[in-house]
Simulated scan of single mutants.
Amino acid sequence: MFSALRRTRSISRIALDPPAPMADRHGIAVVLIVRNEERHIGEWGRFHAKAGVRHFYVYDNGSTDGTLVQLVAAVGVQNVTVIPWHQKLRDGAGAEIHNQVLAYAHAVANFGDQFRWMTFIDVDEFLVPKSAETLPECLAHLESEVNISLPWHMFGRNGFEEPPEGGIVANYTRRHPEPMSPLKGMCNFKMIVDPCHVTAMKVHSIETDGSGDSVNDKGVRASVGDRKKPGFYSADHIQLNHYYTRSNSELQAKIKRGSNMTQNEADHVRRVMRKVDQIEAESVEDLAAKRWFAGG
């Protein structure tokens, strides 16, 4: 209760009118808000380009390094649209408007009409094709759906003090065994949606046609509140890997940067380290991303 009171009041849900679909819309677009990810964004871009992403919409939150250069080099300038997005906005009553959610809503409204699918992930999140070679192929059996929820698979430091040679996917191969863990902050989702049905955006839930209902990657439907029940879990077709910490030095730098929303610094540190301790309390080997990325 008290930690919640220390955080700045915020607007984290933004409603919008969905765009009208273009007649020739197709493929999947990734929307990303990013700041100073030069070290890893090239690998992330290559991974998702190989997975069949058609276009990357990058909302740049004030990067001062080579983040954008590395992404363009990895996937091609014709496949990247960069939108400057370095801001903190408030409404007339002083409530902070969640900058990440605002970026997502902007992307849907302005670019969503061109795509069958749109997803909203971070540079530490990788969408791993499981049932086919590309994401569009993995989604083919869900053509009649408009809202798909994918649970986090949480990876910790894997014993690395400094960033290892060879990148994220090859080196981080142990994760928490329970994606649907009841521990606070451990079970959450990112979505793949039909942007032409989106009526409201949040970071971890999206409303389509006025409803928060979604399906898992097998097509099993659930309400927002029921997604965290164990029976909703599936990663048969697409697995969402969340490399939450990366190396310890990168974790410490992440903590130092602070939250993307205004809040008490000590509260932020406690929340991050509580989640890290939970992720690393136990682990299982997971080679799905490594095997897919290394093949072909």
Rank of each mutant, 00 (worst) to 15 (best):
V101N: 00
S12V: 09
I11Y: 00
R157W: 08
A222V: 03
V198C: 03
K50Q: 10
V69F: 10
G185Q: 01
F160E: 06
V108E: 00
S223F: 01
F120H: 06
P84M: 08
V224H: 12
G295M: 14
T208N: 07
D194Y: 07
S181A: 15
I83T: 14
I28V: 08
I168A: 04
A235N: 13
D17H: 15
T173N: 12
G66K: 13
P84G: 09
N61V: 05
P230I: 08
K218E: 15
P84F: 11
P230F: 06
R39V: 13
L16W: 11
A105I: 09
A23D: 13
H26Q: 13
T262H: 10
G212E: 12
C138N: 02
A253Y: 05
I279N: 00
F293T: 02
A23P: 12
S149D: 09
F126G: 00
D286F: 01
N248I: 13
K202N: 12
R274D: 15
A15H: 11
D124A: 07
I121R: 00
A288Y: 06
E96T: 14
M1C: 11
G42T: 04
V80G: 02
K275V: 05
A281Q: 10
Q278F: 08
T67K: 03
E250R: 10
E125S: 01
M261G: 13
G185V: 01
R221Q: 10
H98L: 06
S10C: 10
H153W: 12
M118D: 04
L240A: 06
A15V: 12
L32Y: 04
Q252C: 09
F56E: 04
W44I: 08
D124L: 06
H106R: 07
N171G: 03
V108D: 01
P136V: 01
N216H: 02
I11N: 02
H197N: 10
L150V: 02
R116P: 09
K290E: 05
I11Q: 03
E265M: 13
I28C: 04
V77T: 14
Y172V: 05
E145L: 04
W292L: 07
C196S: 06
W117V: 01
E96P: 06
Q239W: 04
M261H: 14
E125H: 03
I279H: 01
D209H: 13
A253I: 08
A222K: 03
T199A: 01
D277F: 14
R271K: 15
T8N: 08
L89S: 15
K254E: 04
R6F: 11
G62C: 09
N99Q: 14
M186K: 04
R157P: 05
R25D: 07
Y59C: 02
A29V: 00
I28T: 06
N216C: 04
W117F: 01
Y172F: 15
G296I: 10
V72H: 12
D17A: 14
S131G: 09
L139I: 08
Q252L: 11
Q252T: 09
G112K: 05
R6W: 11
M180I: 01
E38C: 06
Y233Q: 06
M191L: 14
R25Y: 03
E285A: 11
D213C: 14
T208F: 07
G42C: 05
